[in-house]
């Protein structure tokens, strides 16, 4: 009896050691991937920041942003072998203020090499119609219309001397019908893959250009406010999303 017991204990010990070793050998450590959105102004990619007077290259009007936020959601990473890692509960507000909230952090990414990132600009239609949400989707974040349920997917506010009341405010969204604004985009990293091994920093740098919102749009002197899902929201967000581009990776 005693002999049998000790065999059992010994073999269990052996089994545990063996399996835990195996795990470490086969799977590289998971890690965190950061997607950083750097904001530039105009096709010249000049400096963009809040509370700084800028001149819009196409409108020719001066404008000072006090707030610039937008949703990014449903982030996925494509591994070298073609498989995808999809982040669960993947909702972020990218905020151009200087607090570091221009970063989207994807935790627990399986170790490996990645070649592409895919993301949705805006919030998927399901979450626009599923009742009370938390985290980045909490309506208390001020990015949800109370009277016409749905997320404000891009919010740009500030002052502009040419606007009739001296301010501009564009709350852009809409998740259904022909004016739905949410859009999936994917970006290839080119020749170098992004390595995730739990040790190295893994950063993806994106460039977004808020000036694009007014690409071919009316002057702020004519139109300085929009607070609903409509064709204007659709065209402004499309123009903005279309030129968000991959810049480089940092490993």
């Amino acid at each position: 009896m005693k002999f049998l017991n000790s065999i059992l204990i010994f073999s269990t010990f052996l089994f545990l050691t063996f399996t835990s070793c195996k795990k470490e050998d086969d799977q590289p450590k998971q890690g965190e991937v950061t997607i950083e959105f750097d904001h530039v102004w105009g096709s010249a990619e000049g400096e963009f920041s809040l509370n700084k007077e800028l001149t819009h290259p196409m409108l020719g009007e001066k404008m000072t942003f006090t707030l610039f936020k937008y949703y990014v959601s449903n982030v996925r990473l494509k591994a070298k072998d073609g498989s995808w890692y999809t982040m669960p509960e993947s909702y972020f507000i990218v905020d151009a203020d200087a607090s570091g909230s221009n970063k989207v952090v994807v935790p627990n990414v399986p170790g490996g090499e990645y070649t592409d990132v895919e993301m949705m600009f805006g919030v998927d239609s399901l979450r626009n119609a599923s009742g009370a949400q938390t985290g980045a989707l909490d309506p208390a974040k001020g990015m949800f219309w109370s009277w016409n349920s749905g997320y404000i997917m891009v919010k740009a506010e500030g002052t502009a001397p040419t606007s009739t009341d001296g301010t501009f405010a564009f709350h852009l969204g809409g998740f259904k019908g022909e004016n739905k604004v949410q859009t999936v985009k994917s970006y290839n990293f080119g020749t170098t893959a992004l390595v995730v091994d739990g040790e190295r920093e893994a950063e993806i740098h994106m460039l977004a250009n808020p000036a694009r919102l007014w690409h071919g749009a009316e002057k702020l002197a004519v139109k300085s406010k929009n607070h609903m899902p409509n064709a204007l929201a659709k065209s402004m967000t499309t123009n903005f999303y279309d030129v968000v581009r991959f810049d480089h990776i940092h490993n």
Partner: peptide, 8 residues
């Protein structure tokens, strides 16, 4: 009919 869910 602008609100699509009892929770919000």
């Amino acid at each position: 009919g602008g609100i699509n869910h009892i929770e919000v």
